[in-house]
Amino acid sequence: MNKKWGIAIIMCLALCAFNIATEHIFEVPKNWPKPTYNSNKNPLTKEKVELGRELFYDPILSKNNLISCASCHSPYTAFTHVDHDLSHGIDDRIGTRNSPALMNLAWHHLYMWDGAINHLDMQALAPISHPDEMGEKIESVVLKLQHSKKYSKLFLKAYGDTVVTGEHTLKAISQFMLTLISANSKYDSVMRKQSHFTEQESKGYQLFKQHCASCHTEPLFTHTGFENNGLPIDSTLNDIGRMRITKNPQDSLKFKVPTLRNIEFSFPYMHDGRFKKISDVLKHYTSGIVHSKTLAKSLQQPILLSSNDKVDLTTFLLTLTDKVFLFNPKHSFPKK
């Protein structure tokens, strides 16, 4: 009997230790909602996250072995592509959209500007296979990884098996992306009552809650749904957004609401990267809104902001910069 209890206690302890370990890798910030990503189906471990990180930074995922995920999602710019409006991929081909900043992805339920991807695990398939991005096939990626000594070791460590599968490759990349949590901006410390807004930031926060928060909802600064925010159509791209997927005219010109966290670093802005500066964006919201059938209700009435208001609002938006996130060594290029 004693022995059995002993075993039971050891198992409990092991389980607790495991829980503590995973919590440390993926911690839900205080007062945040429950993540949409079900990590019970893909429990995070240090080894799997590390494998995912290697994959994220490795051009082996592309056909010519030159383009990695980080080519378009650089850690120092909140994982977006800064120098281009439309992202550049394999053989310098230009895509049709701006690469979004990557953070807090565990709380999203659909991915891409039009929600084409229904699960974070499936996200990597899109750039890997896209002829203008990495131009490769997941089947060949798996073969390349299988033939690499480095990855045999890493897969063994992560999954206890040197056999590389599509499932394990994708889930590891997900694990790395799940750890990209930004919740340490000045805004966050104010919310945790560890610091204070300046008067200007405070005013900006009020304006933000009044005009912007219905879509860029706290604490993620996006409600993760799709909206038409009144941008004029770019006739060279004719991007209809969400309607491409649902084929429903009510979704015409709706795009996924992007987060505003780290907005200071994630320019250029919007799905096609049309704006370079925050001031361009504010100009759009105050005087550039195009009224079409699917324009969001909250933007039907004009937003009036004086030039002081604009400065205040911008000052607030800059409190969303999270240096801990941007310069986190755990997120950057893996060391040899």
Binding site: I117, N118, H119, L120, M122, G166, S174
Partner: peptide, 24 residues
């Protein structure tokens, strides 16, 4: 199953029966 993320065996996306540009 279509919205449950990456899976193995016959459902592994390397089987060529998964759309990459739009999940499903």
């Amino acid at each position: 199953t279509n919205v449950s993320g990456a899976m193995g065996g016959d459902l592994d996306p390397t089987k060529g029966m998964y759309w990459t540009w739009q999940s499903g």
